[in-house]
Simulated assay, not measured.
Amino acid sequence: MSDFIAATERGLLERHGLADFNSLWDVQLDAVDEPNIGRGGWSSVFRLELEGAGFYLKRQNNYLTRTLHRPFGEPSFSREFRNITRYQSLGIPSLQAVFFGERLIEDERRAILMTRALDSWTDLDSLLQQWPTLSAHQRLAILQACGQLARTLHAANQVHGCFYPKHIFLRSRANAYLAQLIDLEKTRPAFFGWRDRIKDLEPLLRRAPFWTEAEVRELLATYLQAATDSELVGLWWQRLAKRSSYKEAL
Rank of each mutant, 00 (worst) to 15 (best):
Arg243Tyr: 13
Ala241Arg: 13
Asn83Ile: 06
Glu218Leu: 08
Arg171Cys: 06
Lys242Ser: 12
Leu140Phe: 04
Phe4Ser: 06
Pro35Trp: 12
Trp121Gln: 09
Ser44Asn: 15
Asp183Thr: 01
Val27His: 08
Leu235Met: 08
Ile5Leu: 14
Gln158Asp: 00
Gly17Asp: 10
Glu49Arg: 14
Leu12Asp: 07
Ser245Glu: 14
Pro132Ser: 07
Leu153Gln: 02
Ala179Met: 04
Arg197Asp: 08
Val98Leu: 14
Leu224Phe: 05
Pro93Trp: 10
Arg103Ser: 14
Phe4His: 11
Trp42Met: 11
Ala221His: 02
Gln225Gly: 00
Ala117Gln: 13
Leu143Ile: 03
Arg103Glu: 15
Ala19Ser: 15
Gln130Ile: 00
Leu104Arg: 12
Asp200Pro: 01
Tyr246Val: 11
Ala53Val: 04
Glu74Leu: 11
Ser76Lys: 09
Leu57Pro: 09
Glu202Cys: 13
Pro35Met: 13
Ile105Cys: 06
Pro189Glu: 12
Gly73Trp: 08
Glu80Lys: 04
Gln60Ile: 05
Met1Ser: 11
Ala7Leu: 11
Val216Asp: 03
Phe192Cys: 09
Val216His: 01
Leu95Met: 15
Arg10Cys: 06
Leu170Cys: 11
Arg70Lys: 12
Pro75Gln: 05
Gln129Asn: 15
Asp30Met: 10
Glu231Val: 12
Ala176Val: 03
Pro75Tyr: 08
Arg15Pro: 02
Leu205His: 02
Ala156Tyr: 08
Lys58Ile: 09
Gly193Cys: 05
Pro35Arg: 10
Phe99Lys: 06
Gly11Phe: 00
Ile37Met: 11
Ala208Arg: 01
Gly17Thr: 12
Phe169Gln: 00
Ser76Arg: 05
Arg79Gln: 12
Val27Lys: 14
Phe21His: 04
Leu232His: 09
Asp20Ala: 13
Phe100Glu: 04
Glu218Ile: 08
Leu124Gln: 06
Ser120His: 15
Leu90Gly: 00
Arg66Gly: 01
Ser89Ala: 15
Gln144Pro: 01
Trp42Leu: 08
Glu9Ala: 13
His167Tyr: 08
Val159Met: 04
Ser44Tyr: 02
Leu205Ala: 05
Leu13Pro: 00
Gly38Gln: 03
Arg47Pro: 07
Gly41Arg: 02
Arg195Leu: 14
Trp237Ser: 10
Ala6Ser: 14
Val27Thr: 15
Met1Val: 04
Arg10Ala: 15
Ala117Trp: 09
Gln158Ala: 03
Asn61Met: 04
Lys58Arg: 15
Asn61Asp: 15
Leu50Trp: 12
Ile37Asp: 07
Leu143Pro: 02
Leu250Lys: 11
Gln28Tyr: 06
Phe191Val: 09
Lys247Pro: 00
Ala155Gly: 07
Leu250Asn: 04
Leu50His: 14
Phe81His: 11
Leu13Lys: 07
Leu128Pro: 01
Leu95Gly: 08
Asn83Thr: 03
His154Tyr: 08
Leu232Met: 08
Glu102Cys: 05
Thr133Asp: 13
Ile182Trp: 03
Glu51Ser: 11
Glu34Cys: 00
Glu9Asn: 13
Pro165Arg: 13
Ala145Gln: 03
Leu118Ala: 12
Thr133Glu: 14
Ser76Cys: 13
Tyr56Ala: 04
Thr228Glu: 10
Arg151Ile: 02
Gln96Gly: 10
Arg171Ile: 02
Gly17Lys: 10
Arg116Val: 05
Leu57Lys: 10
Glu14Pro: 01
